[in-house]
Amino acid sequence: MKWAIRDLLNPVVTRSMLFGSDPFDVESILKKVDAIKVMSGKQIQAVWLGEWEEKAKRYSELCDKAEAAGNKISARAYAKMVTECRYACFMINIEDVENKREIYSRLEESYKRYISFCKNKVEYAEIETKAGKIPAYIHYPDSGRKTGYPTVITYSGIGSCKEELEMLAAPLNERGIAVITPDMPGAGAAIIHNNIKCGGKQLEAAFDGIYKFVKAHKKLDEKNIANFGLCMGGGYAFRATVKNPKVKACVSLFPLLMNFADQSSIPVWMKRGKWSSYQYCEDYLESMRVLEEGTHSADFLMAYSDDDNWMSHDASQRLLDKATGYKESIHIEDKPAYVSEETIMHAMPVGEQYHWVKHEAADFIAARLISNS
């Protein structure tokens, strides 16, 4: 065999660890995967899902015990661990849509319990758009009792969810900024519960709806906003900034524009299959060209890597060149660790550097939204 079975899980492991899964929990489950005698996608899936669910049950019991004893700090920590376990399950590309829906529902419920223990207010919202209701959370930096919060709108792409976007919200909350984490079309509850598929028309409706939501919200400052996205969401952030001249800053971390990307490098599971078909609209690729339209003059920060096998250096440069105002770039030179020839993923080269890149990104935004920051 040319490569280990666990290499098939590299993309899932990367995303799980980005979200906060404990490295030792990950390694213990990967050892169970290594023990599989005959390579089988269904067997790998069964072991991965089963082992994470067992850990989720254990951490849930610990959360119950801590809550009953009035130990809120421990309860919050254990609730987050449960959410991380359920997120690792959600990352598997399951063809059974109903099973995927059940897994996501468990993630939703565990996340709701987790945020109930958080010191800062996390408020659920449903954003009206022409494509349907976009579920979202507003992460306040404090109790949420003030008005005029500087606001960042975060974006991610296919296969993500608003719960995952907490990792973008947290460093901004620490800097006194409110953050909206929406389920964009084709992602999270938008697709699973509201059947809003991913396509250019749906995304444009989402951008418009989110801006109207911010404008109408009494606590958010529509004149003091930024857009922040990663992966496909990095492309969304750029296009959303094009659509609103009031935006002061835009940050795109390893942005992916599908029409810029090397189509031959995009894995088969993203192009066809029951789950992929469920997420995308029929004219997906053609309709996504709308994201390439227009330019913006907001301050722009982009992180990219030459080891990204979907967006080449030239493709990343094309996006950077589109910004007409002040701009900076972070060139990631570190070689990705969780990678093999067969499973190299767009998310890995820069995603593995997120632990330090997030602070540069958050400081870039804070310097433009908060006076004297």
Rank of each mutant, 00 (worst) to 15 (best):
A189V: 04
K248N: 01
G157I: 05
L165D: 05
E61V: 13
E128N: 03
I5H: 02
P23S: 02
R106P: 09
M258Y: 12
R113C: 02
W356L: 03
K322N: 06
K322A: 06
P23T: 09
L107M: 12
K271N: 00
K2T: 14
V12W: 02
G294E: 05
Y278G: 04
K215Q: 14
Y338D: 11
A240Q: 06
H193E: 15
A240V: 14
V242K: 02
R58P: 01
V97N: 06
I192Q: 07
V339R: 09
M184E: 00
K57F: 12
E98N: 04
D208A: 14
K243A: 08
A125E: 15
M184K: 00
L18Q: 11
L8A: 07
I330D: 06
S312A: 05
V12H: 04
P349T: 04
G157E: 11
L168N: 09
P11V: 04
V339E: 15
I36R: 09
F213T: 03
K243H: 07
A75W: 04
E328K: 15
K246S: 12
K32Y: 12
V242I: 06
R239Q: 05
D307T: 10
D262E: 12
V247T: 15
L253V: 13
N173R: 12
S373N: 11
I158N: 05
K57R: 15
E333A: 09
C161H: 02
S28N: 15
D25E: 15
L203G: 08
K119N: 13
E67V: 08
T324W: 08
A35E: 12
N71S: 10
E95F: 01
K243T: 11
S371E: 14
I127A: 04
F364V: 13
R239W: 11
L203K: 07
L253Q: 10
R113S: 05
M17A: 00
K80E: 13
P141Y: 00
C85V: 06
I344K: 14
I138E: 06
A323L: 10
W48A: 04
C198N: 10
S287W: 04
V242S: 03
R106T: 13
N99P: 01
I210D: 02
K133Q: 08
L49R: 03
K2S: 06
V357D: 00
D262P: 08
H355T: 09
A303K: 05
K80D: 07
F238D: 08
D142R: 07
